[in-house]
Design a binder for these strands. Sequence first.
DNA 1: GTCATCGTACTGGTCTGACCAAGATCAGAC
DNA 2: GTCTGATCTTGGTCAGACCAGTACGATGAC
Lengths: 246, 246
Amino acid sequence: MELKRAAEGEKGFEKVFAFLRERLLEGSLKPGDRLISERELATLLGVSRPIVREALRALTVLGIVEIRDRIGTVVTRPDVSVLNDFFTFALAQQADMLDDVMQARVAIECQAIRLACERANIADFERLQRTLAKIGETIDEADAGGMADFEFHRSIVVASHSETLTVLHSSMAGLLTHSHRSRRELVQAFPSMKTYLIDDHRRIFDAIIARDPERADATLRKHFAIGDEYRRRAVVGDIDKTSASR
Amino acid sequence: MELKRAAEGEKGFEKVFAFLRERLLEGSLKPGDRLISERELATLLGVSRPIVREALRALTVLGIVEIRDRIGTVVTRPDVSVLNDFFTFALAQQADMLDDVMQARVAIECQAIRLACERANIADFERLQRTLAKIGETIDEADAGGMADFEFHRSIVVASHSETLTVLHSSMAGLLTHSHRSRRELVQAFPSMKTYLIDDHRRIFDAIIARDPERADATLRKHFAIGDEYRRRAVVGDIDKTSASR
DNA sequence: GTCATCGTACTGGTCTGACCAAGATCAGAC
DNA sequence: GTCTGATCTTGGTCAGACCAGTACGATGAC
C-alpha cells in the first residue's frame, strides 16, 4: 500500500489514469513500449482489473494507447482519429456550428495552401492534377462530383505536409463531405456553377504550381466566397418558396 | 436479445459504445439528458456492468458525457478540454509537432482576425485595448509579458465570435503559452524586439478597429513571420555555438 | 545438433455477484 | 403541513472466475 504513493490522493480510475499519464508525459513510456499486463497494473496500484481497464480504455479513445487482444497494451503514436471522434460528437449536437466549422475549414485550407506552395513536391502536384481532372470528369454527377471536389481540397492540405493541419482538416471530413454534397446539389440549379467549379479549382491549382502563396490564398478564399454566394442565393430561393413558414 | 439488434455485430465494449454513439449522433440523446443507469444499460445490451462503465468512461474522456457520482450519467455539451488532453499527450511524445501546431495556430488566428473585423463589438474592442495595454505594461516581465501576449491573441479569436475557432485555439493553449514564453525569453536578447512586440500588436489592433480584414490578416501574418525570424536568429545563434554537433 | 510440434503460462475480454457510500424519495411521526 | 428517517437507487469498486487465443519454451523426431 506504500507503493500506491506513486499516484496518491486520487482513487480508483483517477489513480491509474494519473499513474499512466505521468509516465507518458514524462517520457518513461514511449510509443512502441508495451505496458505491463492489466493484472500486474491492478495489483501494482492496488485496484481491481475493471478499473485498470477503464483507464486503458480511456487512453485508447484518446489515441494514446492501443489494446491488442491477447497481446498486450502498447503505447502508440498519438492518433488523429480522436479529434475526429470528438468533432463528430461535438458537431452532431450543435448543428448551428456548421457555418462555424466552415470558417475553421477555410482557416485550415488557406494556411495549408500557403504551406503547400512552399512544400509541395512532384507527388503532390500529380495528386492535385489527378483530383483536378476528376472534378472535370464528374462535373455532372452529384455524389462523385462532391467526392472529387473534396479530394481536391484534401490534396491541398496533404500537400502542406503539415500533420496537424491534415488532422484538423480530416476531423471535419464528415461535415465537409456533407457540405460538399449539398453544394453539389446546387449544380443543377445553377448551370453557371459548372464553369465556376472547374475554372476556380483550375486557378487554385495554377497558383500552387506557381508556388505563389499570396495568390493561392486569395484565390482559394475567393473560391469559398463564391461558393457561399451560390449557397446564399439557393437559400434565398428556398426561402422565397416557403417564406410563409417564417 | 432482439433489442440487441440496435448495436449488433460488435461485441462488448464496442456494442455499448456504438449504441450510445448512435443515440448521441442521432440526437435522441441531447446535452442535459440523463442516461439510464449503468445496470439498466448493461441488461439492456446484454453486457456486464464493467463493460458499460468502460464505454461511459470512454465517452467521459471524450467530453461527451459526465458521470456524476451517485446521481447518474448525463450528456454534456462537448468540452474543449479533451483536445487539450490530446495535444498535451501528443506533444509530449512528438516535440517536432510544435512547429506544425504553430502553423495551425496561424491558420486559426488569421481566419479569426478576419471574422473579428466583421463581427467584433464594443466589448471586444475594449478587451483588445485592455490586453494591448497590458502588453506594453509588462514588456519587461517574462512571464507576465508572455501571458499578456497570449491574452491579446486570444482576444482576437474571441472577437471572431466563432466557437469552433475559439475551441481550436484554446485547445492549443498549452502549447501556445509555452511558445509565447520561450519567445519572450528572447526579448532580453533582442532589445529591438520590444518595439516589435508593442508596435506590431498595435498595428494589428488598428487593423481590427479599422475593420479591414485584408490588412488585419496581412499584419498578423507578418507579425508571426517576424516572430519566427527572431526565433530563427536566436536558434542560429545557438547553432553557431554548437555547429560541430551537426 | 536442428527443427518442428506440442503444452503451458500468460494476455486481453468478459461475466457474475457482491459490498459500500451517499443522493433521492416517500412514508410516517410530529 | 413539515420534518425526519428508512429505503431504494446510483455510481464506485472489488474479487474471482472462465474463455480464447498468443508467445514461448520444452519436448520429441529427424
